[in-house]
Simulated assay, not measured.
Amino acid sequence: MTQFRTAVGFALSAALLWWTLRGVPLEQVVGVLRQSNGLLFVISTVVATAIFPLRARKWRPILEPIAGTIAFAPLWRSTAVGMMVTNVFPLRAGEFARAFALTREVPRVALTSALGSLAIDRLFDALVVFAMMFAAMLDPRFPADATLAGRSVAQLATGGVLLMGGVFVACYLVVLHPEWVVHLAGAVVQRIIPRHRDVLVGLVELAIGSLAVLRDTRRFFAVLGWTVLHWCTNAVALWLGFVAVGIDVPVSAAFFLQGVLAVGVAVPSSPGFFGVFEAAATIGLGVYGLPRDLAVSWALGSHLLSFIPITVLGAIYFARLGVRVDDVRGTTSS
């Protein structure tokens, strides 16, 4: 099954990369990148890499209820290791590697607790990224006649706001009545895969425990604030890349595009999201009526440049921590 999922991911990445590049001569892409502002592209790369220390800092208040205050350094190194593994290994092993690396540096953090905290991390990411995306769609400069999946901008923005509100309400219901969720999870798992009931219910209980951040106003706003700063920084990096290749769109386009990219990279793909990133970027920028060669050139240039620094840093920390490839594989399969 693991090999099958890996093969599907690589096949889908290859197909999407072919779809993205068809009709766009490679020499045309090279020409656009050669004429781009190299300094701005470098600055864009630096800003894009800065989101990872911000993600590490955001992790601290999430972990506080279950592990106390953790120093920034191990959080940062674990985050870098996780992103490197995501970029190099298949099957999205990066989140497992991030949690595993933290347990190596901070033994008081159990692996299951670390994994539960990452679920909360991603929940805040989703809420903030899509809230920003829907806000960008309400910008008067957003193409008025644009549609996505056959729906108008107004419909999508309204539905998105309601969805985000619904998710927050659901999270608070889980916090207030955790026993309901545990009972429901146990009943469902018992019917589907009873032999793994105890393990999966235990993970649900840990995830609910990680939601303790919602009970503490200070921690909640700390996590929310770091999440907003993280994704604003990422949007700035995208926009600087736009300017570097001569893409003339409003700043809100960067907030819209990062939402489209978040959806795109969620599908199965090769390590590093190659193919799905470029396809999602082309579709997202196409909403603004950009020439395909500009969109593809930005996507390839921005993706490759942002891929390198965090992958190198993560590899260095990976080696220093003494983590082995077999450790990552074993964690992923467990």
Rank of each mutant, 00 (worst) to 15 (best):
M1A: 13
T2M: 05
A15W: 07
A15M: 08
L16F: 10
L17G: 06
L17F: 12
L21E: 10
L21R: 06
V24F: 14
E27M: 10
V29Y: 02
V30H: 07
V32P: 03
L33Y: 04
S36A: 15
N37Y: 05
G38F: 10
S44A: 14
V46E: 04
T49H: 01
L54N: 01
K58F: 02
P61G: 09
L75K: 09
S78E: 00
S78K: 00
V81K: 01
G82Y: 00
M83T: 00
P90T: 13
R98E: 09
L102A: 07
E105H: 06
P107V: 02
V109F: 00
V109L: 01
S117I: 10
F124C: 11
F124V: 09
D125S: 09
L127M: 14
V128C: 03
F130L: 14
F134W: 11
A136W: 04
R141F: 02
F142D: 06
P143C: 01
A149E: 07
V153M: 09
Q155W: 10
T158P: 03
L162Q: 02
L162E: 00
V167K: 05
V169K: 08
Y172C: 14
V181H: 02
H183F: 05
L184A: 15
A187W: 13
V188I: 15
I192Q: 01
R195Q: 12
R195H: 09
D198G: 02
D198T: 13
L200Y: 03
L203D: 06
E205Y: 06
G209P: 10
G209S: 13
L211C: 14
L214R: 08
D216M: 10
R218V: 03
G225S: 03
V228C: 06
A237S: 15
A237Y: 03
L240D: 10
F242N: 03
F242E: 07
A244M: 06
V245G: 08
V249A: 15
V249L: 15
V249W: 13
A254P: 08
Q258I: 09
V260Y: 02
G264F: 01
F273G: 09
G275C: 11
V276Q: 07
G284Y: 04
Y288Q: 05
G289N: 07
S306H: 11
I308W: 04
V312S: 04
A315N: 07
A319F: 12
L321C: 10
G322M: 08
V323R: 15
V328G: 02
T331N: 04
